[in-house]
Lab assay of single mutants.
Amino acid sequence: MSIQHFRVALIPFFAAFCLPVFAHPETLVKVKDAEDQLGARVGYIELDLNSGKILESFRPEERFPMMSTFKVLLCGAVLSRVDAGQEQLGRRIHYSQNDLVKYSPVTEKHLTDGMTVRELCSAAITMSDNTAANLLLTTIGGPKELTAFLHNMGDHVTRLDRWEPELNEAIPNDERDTTMPAAMATTLRKLLTGELLTLASRQQLIDWMEADKVAGPLLRSALPAGWFIADKSGASERGSRGIIAALGPDGKPSRIVVIYTTGSQATMDERNRQIAEIGASLIKHW
């Protein structure tokens, strides 16, 4: 058993032996400061991975655009179909130039040979490839079927209504393609630790998130040596930015963190910096 498999397999085991986890309101002070700095709403939640207890939250039940963070949920739905014998990670999917949409750094290189379902999930999560996400959405029946999958998990909040890139429109008060921090954190925890997916599929999902290559300026920039993080970021119109993550010290995840912001006029660099500073406060007061 690899170190990674050891880590995921023991998450339920550690729940019975973990020390009490204490919240630190200092992080919420930073979240509120980020709102002031960005001139935008910020949603935040910090969840204990083992118990599911909410440690801190700010606007946990307000809607925010999901942006590309939905791609983790999408690959969770794909893995659920794999577990049920309805899909194979090794199945190759062929597509054409007409299928390519904006920001497809991986799929645009494989027009001649296509990509496997496994490769598409990797591209969608680690590189946020939009065509990969659309191709995967097609395999499960489209955005409405992803919403149905989430409903069956008990998440009646999170919804996907459109495809890439239209889902990134982020119109104020538009509930399409949105979630709430509390709903996203709970759903992510179920995917990573619950019985919905097999152990192998849970491991695969967290491996893809751990290999994320496009979230460096966010929480990863504040991470001390030896800490673990598996994450997925997102960005969209109207100053929207977000990240969902499982992270913790000693090389294993122990908390879920979800951060969303929307409605800012700030630059992408400034949005990144504010999220990184929230992460730094979280780690300092861990």
Score class of each variant (00 low, 15 high):
residue 168 N to H: 04
residue 145 E to H: 13
residue 171 I to L: 15
residue 76 G to A: 11
residue 207 D to N: 12
residue 41 R to Q: 09
residue 41 R to N: 08
residue 165 P to H: 03
residue 253 P to S: 05
residue 202 R to W: 01
residue 241 R to Q: 05
residue 228 F to S: 03
residue 85 G to S: 08
residue 129 D to V: 00
residue 237 E to K: 10
residue 79 L to M: 09
residue 88 Q to R: 13
residue 153 M to T: 11
residue 53 K to Q: 14
residue 97 Q to S: 14
residue 193 T to A: 13
residue 246 A to C: 11
residue 43 G to A: 04
residue 99 D to T: 10
residue 146 L to P: 00
residue 285 H to A: 04
residue 25 P to R: 07
residue 149 F to C: 05
residue 48 D to E: 12
residue 179 T to G: 01
residue 252 K to C: 11
residue 242 G to R: 00
residue 76 G to V: 01
residue 226 G to S: 07
residue 214 V to C: 09
residue 219 L to K: 02
residue 86 Q to H: 11
residue 202 R to V: 06
residue 9 A to L: 11
residue 109 K to R: 12
residue 139 T to A: 13
residue 143 P to V: 03
residue 244 I to N: 00
residue 240 S to L: 03
residue 242 G to C: 06
residue 243 I to M: 05
residue 240 S to E: 09
residue 217 P to T: 09
residue 205 L to V: 04
residue 82 V to K: 04
residue 252 K to T: 12
residue 274 Q to R: 10
residue 38 L to K: 04
residue 262 T to Y: 10
residue 80 S to G: 11
residue 219 L to N: 02
residue 146 L to Y: 02
residue 226 G to P: 02
residue 58 F to V: 06
residue 266 A to Q: 10
residue 13 F to V: 13
residue 78 V to L: 05
residue 204 Q to E: 11
residue 194 G to D: 10
residue 254 S to K: 09
residue 225 A to D: 14
residue 63 R to G: 01
residue 180 M to I: 11
residue 212 D to H: 03
residue 211 A to K: 12
residue 82 V to L: 04
residue 75 C to S: 04
residue 42 V to S: 01
residue 279 G to V: 05
residue 183 A to G: 05
residue 222 A to P: 06
residue 19 L to A: 15
residue 65 P to L: 04
residue 229 I to Y: 04
residue 284 K to G: 07
residue 175 E to T: 11
residue 74 L to I: 04
residue 257 V to A: 02
residue 220 R to A: 01
residue 113 D to G: 12
residue 252 K to V: 14
residue 169 E to S: 13
residue 56 E to V: 05
residue 41 R to G: 02
residue 52 G to E: 05
residue 47 L to V: 15
residue 168 N to S: 08
residue 254 S to R: 09
residue 53 K to H: 10
residue 188 L to W: 01
residue 60 P to Y: 05
residue 151 H to T: 12
residue 10 L to T: 12
residue 65 P to H: 07
residue 246 A to H: 01
residue 52 G to D: 05
residue 243 I to A: 01
residue 272 N to T: 06
residue 267 T to L: 07
residue 9 A to G: 13
residue 89 L to Q: 03
residue 16 A to T: 12
residue 175 E to P: 15
residue 227 W to R: 00
residue 152 N to Y: 10
residue 239 G to T: 07
residue 74 L to A: 05
residue 226 G to F: 03
residue 219 L to I: 14
residue 38 L to R: 03
residue 143 P to S: 02
residue 268 M to Q: 08
residue 18 C to A: 15
residue 241 R to G: 07
residue 246 A to E: 02
residue 6 F to Q: 08
residue 193 T to Q: 15
residue 262 T to D: 10
residue 91 R to G: 02
residue 169 E to K: 07
residue 145 E to L: 09
residue 165 P to S: 05
residue 267 T to G: 12
residue 223 L to G: 01
residue 153 M to H: 09
residue 198 T to Q: 12
residue 107 T to V: 06
residue 244 I to Q: 00
residue 253 P to G: 05
residue 73 L to G: 04
residue 159 R to W: 04
residue 110 H to Y: 10
residue 2 S to V: 12
residue 204 Q to A: 11
residue 91 R to C: 02
residue 232 K to E: 11
residue 73 L to Y: 03
residue 217 P to S: 10
residue 50 N to T: 14
residue 96 S to E: 14
residue 165 P to G: 03
residue 268 M to V: 08
residue 277 E to L: 11
residue 47 L to S: 05
residue 220 R to H: 02
residue 197 L to F: 03
residue 255 R to G: 02
residue 20 P to S: 11
residue 284 K to A: 15
residue 66 M to W: 00
residue 123 A to G: 05
residue 160 L to S: 07
residue 218 L to Y: 02
residue 222 A to H: 11
residue 134 N to A: 01
residue 197 L to P: 01
residue 72 V to G: 00
residue 144 K to N: 13
residue 43 G to T: 00
residue 152 N to T: 13
residue 88 Q to I: 11
residue 214 V to Q: 08
residue 230 A to G: 07
residue 213 K to G: 09
residue 134 N to S: 02
residue 50 N to C: 12
residue 10 L to A: 13
residue 223 L to D: 00
residue 43 G to C: 01
residue 247 L to S: 00
residue 93 I to V: 13
residue 167 L to M: 12
residue 172 P to A: 12
residue 194 G to I: 03
residue 172 P to H: 09
residue 223 L to E: 01
residue 168 N to M: 04
residue 203 Q to E: 10
residue 140 I to T: 04
residue 243 I to F: 04
residue 19 L to H: 15
residue 210 E to G: 06
residue 175 E to H: 11
residue 174 D to K: 03
residue 183 A to N: 07
residue 202 R to H: 06
residue 238 R to D: 13
residue 265 Q to G: 14
residue 131 T to A: 10
residue 184 M to L: 03
residue 65 P to Q: 05
residue 98 N to H: 13
residue 94 H to Y: 14
residue 178 T to S: 11
residue 3 I to H: 15
residue 200 A to V: 11
residue 180 M to L: 06
residue 84 A to T: 12
residue 91 R to A: 04
residue 229 I to M: 05
residue 14 F to V: 12
residue 2 S to D: 08
residue 117 V to G: 00
residue 10 L to W: 09
residue 4 Q to R: 13
residue 90 G to M: 13
residue 94 H to Q: 13
residue 249 P to R: 05
residue 110 H to Q: 07
residue 281 S to V: 15
residue 269 D to L: 10
residue 214 V to N: 09
residue 168 N to C: 06
residue 168 N to I: 05
residue 59 R to P: 10
residue 181 P to Q: 00
residue 176 R to Q: 10
residue 147 T to D: 06
residue 180 M to A: 14
residue 178 T to M: 02
residue 277 E to A: 10
residue 181 P to V: 04
residue 142 G to R: 01
residue 40 A to H: 03
residue 202 R to S: 14
residue 50 N to Y: 11
residue 134 N to V: 01
residue 251 G to R: 09
residue 176 R to D: 04
residue 87 E to K: 00
residue 6 F to I: 10
residue 284 K to R: 12
residue 193 T to S: 13
residue 19 L to R: 06
residue 134 N to C: 01
residue 277 E to D: 08
residue 91 R to L: 03
residue 111 L to G: 04
residue 9 A to R: 08
residue 279 G to S: 07
residue 247 L to A: 01
